[in-house]
Design a protein around this nucleic acid. Structure first.
Length: 420
RNA sequence: GCGGGUGUAGCUCAGUUGGUUAGAGCGUCAGGUUGUGGCCCUGAAGGCCGUGAGUUCAAGUCUCAUCACUCGCCCCA
């Protein structure tokens, strides 16, 4: 064993597991194709400032979880701790809003956060995210939520719960914030230290507190829904109507606020009952101000992120059948120098014809090679020894029926293709 | 950042009150026919007992530290 090991909170995804990853990735790509979302790939790191400004200065992500380093040129760079700011940056940099009225983007990328690792929480994780930029219509919200729902459904997950809330727009926020502060002021001394801090910096997050006493004290606090302006209210109601007609179950959770600063109006989370503390499998919402704040024209947008490790853990907890490593269809067992010369060519011919073919590379006995073929679960074994070489034939064994016959080497390909 | 649990072969785990060469099952490799798989039998390889220090005549076993994993808090995907 090497004296090195993977850094804390990172993991090797081994060949035995990659087929499962490819499986969910292919489901993701297919779902995105159906919904008309196209893939975007942005850099692994960005200017640190991008996240500070747009993920938000009051977030934990920015305050204590970023992998920040200085480049040789003296620039401060950060491994992306979430996908949205980089995607929006690319959208603006390349003027992706110019061609079509709405940009529908998706990404599969690695995300980095310096956190304490736990089941379903890593320092490097894979995330599937979607961003829909350019529509303020509730239809856009419905489409984005529907996409996530459809993905879960196509993977066989039916017990995922959707939680929904509306935080209101920039017009409603000050009044609500004020009301919340007014409510909290008399009980401020009884709240936990973090909530006291939130009172000043970001009062909304007080609703999110898990401390029992805070929960109790804030139980009757006004929710953002109570302060929605007419437009926001209608937006939220229309979205719910759409979700109803889509048959998507949801619960409105007036305390759902999420930990990123940029959200406006719709926020949502999909939760699974099977992951313990890390039960949020998908989180997202609207961020109607970010694009303008980044220097673009006022442009409404929304999106979500899905943690693939969590998604996979959920699937594995459901006994959903997941693919294993691919199997060769044919195994070629060669004995002796002359046979190997024939084999090299035969292997290439079979593969060129689209037949997955395996062989032995360690000069084992025929018995050992048969065992290997069995382990690979090959349907057909082609045996080539001195006798076969001198007669210009190969021995073809059907591993299931155990039937065995000799066929001319020229006919191998057609015979094999018939049998598969 | 805080609190609890765990750490012995590739994998899953045993290792008695500290006491000689650290065990099992699975897996791997070889043999049981001269060119033939699954079952069975035999044998072999494979272990800085996570790492470092300490206590002791003696440490896988006790103490401390450290690292990693894991569960909860926090946060989030």
């Amino acid at each position: 064993m090497s004296r090195f090991s993977a850094p804390r909170g990172t993991q090797d995804i081994l060949p035995s597991a990659t087929p499962r990853w490819q499986f969910i990735e292919s489901k993701i790509r297919e779902t995105c194709r159906l919904y008309g979302f196209n893939e975007i790939r942005t850099p692994t790191f960005e200017e640190t400032e991008l996240f500070i400004k747009h993920t938000g200065e009051s977030t934990d992500i920015v305050n204590k979880e970023m992998y920040t380093f200085t480049s040789r040129g003296g620039q401060s760079l950060t491994l992306r701790p979430e996908g949205t700011p980089g995607t929006v940056r690319a959208y603006l940099e390349h003027n992706l809003g110019a061609n079509l009225p709405v940009a529908k983007l998706y990404y599969l990328s690695r995300i980095f956060r310096y956190e304490r690792p736990q089941a379903g929480r890593y320092r490097e994780h894979n995330q599937f995210g979607v961003e829909m930029i350019g529509s303020a219509e509730p239809l856009a919200d419905a489409e984005v939520i529907s996409l996530a729902w459809q993905l879960f459904k196509s993977l066989g997950l039916t017990d995922i719960e959707l939680k929904l809330n509306s935080l209101g727009g920039p017009e409603d926020r000050p009044a609500y914030r004020q009301a919340l502060r007014e409510y909290a002021e008399p009980i401020l001394e009884e709240l936990c230290p973090t909530c006291k801090e939130r009172y000043d910096k970001n009062p909304l997050r007080m609703l999110d507190c898990k401390v029992p006493t805070c929960r109790e004290l804030l139980a009757n606090a006004p929710g953002p829904v109570d302060f929605l302006c007419a437009v926001c209210k209608e937006h939220f109601e229309t979205l719910q109507k759409y979700l109803d007609s889509l048959g998507i179950n949801y619960t409105v959770d007036p305390r759902l606020v999420r930990g990123l600063d940029y959200y406006t109006r719709t926020v949502f989370e999909f939760q699974t009952p099977h992951l313990g503390a890390q039960n949020t499998i998908c989180g997202g919402g609207r961020y109607d101000n970010m694009i303008e704040e980044m220097g673009g024209p006022p442009t409404p947008a929304l999106g979500f992120g899905i943690g693939l490790e969590r998604l996979l853990l959920t699937l594995e907890g459901h006994d959903i059948e997941l693919p294993g490593v691919p199997k060769p269809q044919v195994f070629v067992a060669a004995l002796g120098t002359a046979a190997k010369e024939v084999t090299v060519k035969l292997l290439a011919e079979l593969r060129e014809a689209g037949v997955a073919t395996e062989t032995d590379y360690t000069g084992r006995s025929l018995k050992a090679q048969m065992k290997l073929a069995d382990k690979y679960d090959a349907k057909i074994v082609l045996i080539i020894g001195e006798d076969e070489v001198s007669q210009g034939v190969v021995t073809l064994r059907d591993m299931l029926s155990k039937e065995q016959r000799q066929i001319p080497i020229k006919q191998v390909l057609s015979t094999v293709k018939d049998l598969l």
